[in-house]
Every structure is written in structure tokens, then in C-alpha cells.
Amino acid sequence: MKRALTIAMLVLLAMPLLYAMSQLPPHGSATSPAYTHISPRYLERGPEEAGAENVVTDVILNYRGFDTNGEVTVIFTSLAAVLAVLLAGRKGDERPVREPAAEPSPPSVVVRFVVRLLGPFVTMFAVYVIINGHVSPGGGFQGGTVFGALVILITVVLGRSVAEKLQPLGVRRILQAAAPLTFVAVGVLGLALFGDYLAFPRDEALAWVRTSWLMVIEIGIGVGGAAIISAIFWQMGGDR
């Protein structure tokens, strides 16, 4: 009885949804509203209007900056939630519960050397991805994740104490919150100077301001992403 009722409810729910779907333009249709109004404008005027050569960056950080601001905040909140769960019932801040008593198999000289050799190159690649997100695919999220992966690698191979030097304890909280903080900072700057939260200057002479603000947000997202990833890894106890 209950099951029949459930199925009937689902069918009732599915019918208006299917009806609405039948009204949608066909998948991939070039004449659907989404492709005839907003997209051409983004594609044609994005680079000059929003401040980055890469249209994806324009859309994410400028046209849809408010959405991304929310997303960044959600990611930061999820970190807070994960840390709260992992830290529950523990004393102390972010210290490990116990130091590893005896490493069963310390990483060999070869692995240590290669990690030391590749570290600078990986860092360079991460910075390149972040900065070059303006003219080619890439950006803060991707570059930050690459750097976070490097921190994980260093933690596993060279030890957590070496990796932690990259994020001094005093500023670690600020680094973890870097993405929402820079976003809000740029937003408030826009509010103060141009009258709207996250407003970018429209003046043609101020194109460099648009570009540099986008750059600042990208760097903030990158730093924050890397800090969050490494914090979750450390807190899960991945170093032992």
C-alpha cells in the first residue's frame, strides 16, 4: 500500500517535470535563448568588458562574481565543518594526537631527492596556472589544487614539519580564509569606489584595474584552496 502510494506520488511528480522538459529547446540547439542573448555578449565583449582574455574567467569572476563569491564561502564553510568533525573530542588545536612512534619505512633518498628537485617546478606550474588563467584555461582553483597536492607530497615524503613551514601557524587561519576574504575585500572596494558590491570599473581607461582585481581574486582563491586542501589532509592524519 505504502509502496503503491510512493510510486503514484513519483509518477505524479514526474508528469509535470516531463511536460516542462518537453517545452525546453532541443539539446544543443543554436537558437535556444541561452545561446542567442547572453552567450554572444559574453563571447564578443567579455575580454574588453570584464578584464580577462579568457572568457571563462570573465564569466566566473566578473559577470557571475556574486555566485563565485558564494561558492568560495561554501567551500570554506565545508572546511570548517570537516575540521569541526575531525577535531571533535580532541584537545589542542591542530596538533597531531601522537607523533609517529617508529616509521616502518622512511622514504628513500631517491624519493626525497626527486621531491626536492620537482618541488620548485610544481610551484612554478601552480603559479603559472593561476596567473595564466587570464589568457588560457586555468585559474585560482586549479592552481591552488596543484599547490595543495605539492604540500601533500612534501608531507608524505619529507615530513609534516617541512610542509608546515609553507604555512606559518600565525597566519594559517588567514591563509585558509584567503579566498572569501579577498573576494569580500574586492567586493567592498567596489562598493566604496563604484557604488555596488563587487562592482568593477566600467571606464575604458581603468581596464588595468579590472584586470588586476581579477588577478587578486585568482591569487586569493589559489592560496585559500591550497591551504584548505593541506589542512584537511593534515587533519585526517595523512602524515602518519
Binding site: 586549479q142 596543484v146 597536492a149
Partner: peptide, 19 residues
């Protein structure tokens, strides 16, 4: 969609697996 591809490679194939 190279932007999404890079995110997928870094997050999906890299960090998530480690976690």
C-alpha cells in the same frame, strides 16, 4: 571545456584519491 578538465584532473584524480 579545458577549465573543467584541469579541475577534474587535479581534484578528482589527484586530491580526492589521496583523501
Amino acid at each position: 571545456a579545458p577549465d573543467v578538465a584541469m579541475t577534474e584532473a587535479a581534484v578528482g584524480a589527484g586530491v580526492t584519491t589521496v583523501l
